[in-house]
Amino acid sequence: MSVKPKFVVGFVVIVAVLAWLGFTAQEWGNSAIGYATISEAAKSGKLAYIKGYWLKEEPTETNRNVFTFYLKDEEGNVARVIYRNGKPNNFEQATSVVVQGKCENGTIYAKDILVKCPSKYQSEKADSEKKI
């Protein structure tokens, strides 16, 4: 019995779609980054978004491209943040910051810092993070 080419193609298409969905699910697991407090991030050691406020009383340094400051999260815990891409724009004006990074030994090594501005605008993109 010969198999119609149409069914072969249909089978291939379905297998391809399923394979792609599997790949997508796997990538999803790797790319979904959760919001966490400092203590949660310290416990998991994983990359996380940590939302908090700039603690102005503690030293804030800009040394060449390395920017360090102290972050206080919503639970009131404080951690030092080290960021290697210079001081983010609008850092001083920010009402809150979201640090994307890993927390190791009480220090957050930031990969990215998102700055929230006290803006009431709803315009799309306008107050968004810099860069892709």
């Binding site: 997508t24 990538e27 999803w28 790319s31 979904a32 980054i33 919001y35 978004y49 892709i132």
Partner: peptide
């Protein structure tokens, strides 16, 4: 994801932009 996370009552997650690049490439 933020809606699904909050409906399932678990911590909110966000996808890295790279996810979309990887997945849409093929």
């Amino acid at each position: 994801t933020p809606i699904v996370d909050s409906l399932l009552n678990r911590p909110i997650t966000k996808l890295e932009p790279d996810f979309y690049n990887e997945v849409t490439l093929p």
